[in-house]
Amino acid sequence: MKIDNSLPLEYSTEENSNKILGFWIFLGAEIMLFATLFSAYFTLVDRTGNGPSGAEIFEITPVLIETFLLLTSSFTIGLGIHAMRLGNKKAMMAFFSVTLLLGLGFLGVEIYEFVHYVHIGAGLQTSAFTAILLTTLGTHGAHVTFGLFWGLFIILQVKKRGLNPETANKSFIFSLYWHFLDVVWIFIFSFVYLKGMM
């Protein structure tokens, strides 16, 4: 495989650069996936049937914690990629680990939130509103969960195989994924929670 040294490691082969573009296109599809969920959410938000409305069940504290954790994790993974480009494997792995820990924290709070919702009578089957709320949050949460495993696998590979075009490429693509989840969360934070509590 030809390696082009003028580019960062993660772009250095043709295959690598294909993968990065391919992943961007995948993110385009993800935009539509979440756009569909948001369309459904906005349509069903007032259709609460006999169940509670958003204003009745949302709480600001866990949401703020989640937002802060995810924003910070997005920052640390950015630093991880920066460290990777400097060739600093140790720092990169440290930043990636911090990212995953923050992600785990986010997931913990989200699971608490879900349990709480179900506990207060806002389960999946309660109404159209609760169903789309939990589906939208759940889809994002499932992405985060998937990302945690993915990130873990990458850290293991970087540890074992070192930074080479392949592992660098995987790490970079993972960082794109993670940033994207942060962007989606911003929209959930603004248009599900804040709008709901406004």
């Binding site: 580019l7 650069s17 961007w24 296109i25 385009g28 935009i31 997005s74």
Partner: peptide, 24 residues
């Protein structure tokens, strides 16, 4: 996020990437 963290515009594929995002 897109510009600072995701480096959307750093390679010669930037045209394709931005078109993709804007289209999306």
């Amino acid at each position: 996020q897109l510009v600072v963290f995701m480096h959307a515009g750093e390679t010669k594929d930037r045209g394709a990437i931005y078109t993709n995002i804007y289209y999306g």
